[in-house]
Structure formats: C-alpha cells, structure tokens
Design a protein around this nucleic acid. Structure first.
Lengths: 124, 124
DNA sequence: TTTCATTGATTACAGTTGTAAACTATATAA
DNA sequence: TTATATAGTTTACAACTGTAATCAATGAAA
C-alpha cells in the first residue's frame, strides 16, 4: 500500500500510535499536547488529517472512537529514510553514514552497536 | 550562523551550487530544469527564495550575477540529518542505522565502507 | 425530558512549497 | 536610436502545514 506523506507534527502522533495503539483521541491529546506544547484542538486536527491521508483508521468503542495505524512503522520509516537520503545525498547512503559518524553525532555506545550490527551482516 | 530551512526542491539547487559554485542563473537553469523536469521560471523562483533565506549570495559579474553558497554543505547536511533522525527516531540514531541496514537498503559495498569507517573510530 | 459536557467535524488563517507566468530593466544587435 | 533578447523581480495560485477556534451531535446527568 502507498505510504502517504506524513508531516513533522503528524509523525509525533504516528509514533505514539505505533507504540500504544489503540488509543482514544483523549489519550492522544493527554499524551501529546504537553510534549508538543500545543492545544488539544491542534492534536485533533492532526488526527483528522492522518485519517484523511489513510495513515490512521478507527473503530467505534461505545461513545467514542479508538484509533489505530493503517500504515506500518517500518514502511513509513523506510520511505522517509529513502526520501531523506535521496534529497541530501542523491542516494549515496554510505556518504550519509560517513558524515554522520565523522561529525561525532554518534555516541561511543551507538558506534559499538553499529559494529555489532555489521558483524552479523554476511556479504552475500 | 543559522541554517535556514531548505525545501526539497531547493536542495537540488544547493547541491549544484556546492558542487560547481559560482554559477550564473543561466547555468543553473540549464543544469537543473531538465533533471528536475520543471520550467526555467521555477528554477529562478528557487534561486530567489534561497537568496531571501540567506542560503545563497551573489556578485555582479558584468551584465549578470554569479551566485555562491552562503551556508556550508556540511552544516546543512548535519542540520537536516539531526532534524530527520529526531523526527523519525526521537534522536535514537543507532536505531536508524540498524533499521536501514536490516532493510538491505545498503549495498554490500556500502556495508564494507561502513566497516572501514568504524574501524578507524577509536573509542575515547 | 431537558441540559451539559464530551468529542468528532468544520472552518480559519498565515506561512511554506511547488510550479510558473508576467513584468521590467538593460545591454546589444540592427 | 530603436527593437529585441536576456535576466532579474513581482505576482499568482493551489496544496500542505502548524496552529487553533467554533460548530454540531450524542450520551450522560439532573
């Protein structure tokens, strides 16, 4: 299925849903309006836009709705990553990693994790 | 200096400038309107917006202008990368690398390059 | 049953972006 | 000198975003 374009603010909503779905709008508002420092109305707007984009779905649960994700976190992350690397590096992924590592944007711990990851990666 | 927000389309202009600066608008139009599949006017709009944002500067060169970058590629890439990883991973950079590697979005060659990079990285 | 509160839906509005045409000033060819 | 091409400046416009208030429907309390 097609991954819709999810804006910065909408990503916050999606991340919450992926972690704790299903949720009511009230739960989402409680969880996000503080963190995002915006009004409850704003969160509701995001929810509605995500519904319209097909990123969220809902089911009736008594008086109100519970929302759930209709696109997987994995797919969204991959789409977003590719898009980003295409934009900034014309697709030269390794270039990105290189710069990031050089810039010390990674902690020693993260570097260690990465080494582990690559160790398991057998070249075909 | 502050890095202005550079849009997807504007990134194409900046990448060209970083690679071949200084350039006239004509050179930019020639180089990009085909690749980006848009009209010369559109490229000029991007140039103007980038001027307004302070990402580009210009100097008079006879009858017309030549443009050059006022923000460094390195800084822009780092800002954009941090922003992206913050949005998608709440800053958990290693998580990003992990997913990307798992998804086989890297070629074997790129993985090898990465290994090399990490080898040189001495833990403090 | 009438009213209030809750919550989803609609409307609002300015700023950004992708896209491009129209306008204007100026240098150069005729 | 006048006409034309070139290149920079303005204007245009719809879609998307961030942000939020208002409207409407419905269940619950009085």
């Amino acid at each position: 299925m097609n991954i819709p374009k999810i804006s910065d603010a909408e990503w916050e909503v999606m991340k919450l849903i992926w972690k704790s779905s299903p949720l009511t709008s009230e739960e989402m508002v409680d969880s996000l309006s503080g963190k995002m420092n915006c009004s409850p109305s704003t969160i509701k707007t995001y929810i509605n836009r995500l519904l319209k984009k097909g990123a969220l779905g809902y089911e009736k649960d008594g008086r109100s709705y519970v929302y759930y994700a209709k696109v997987s976190e994995k797919d969204c992350i991959l789409a977003e990553s590719k898009n980003f690397i295409e934009k900034v590096y014309d697709g030269a992924t390794a270039m990105f990693f290189a710069n990031f590592i050089e810039e010390k944007a990674l902690t020693d711990e993260e570097i260690q994790q990465l080494r582990e990851l690559l160790k398991d990666k057998k070249p075909k």
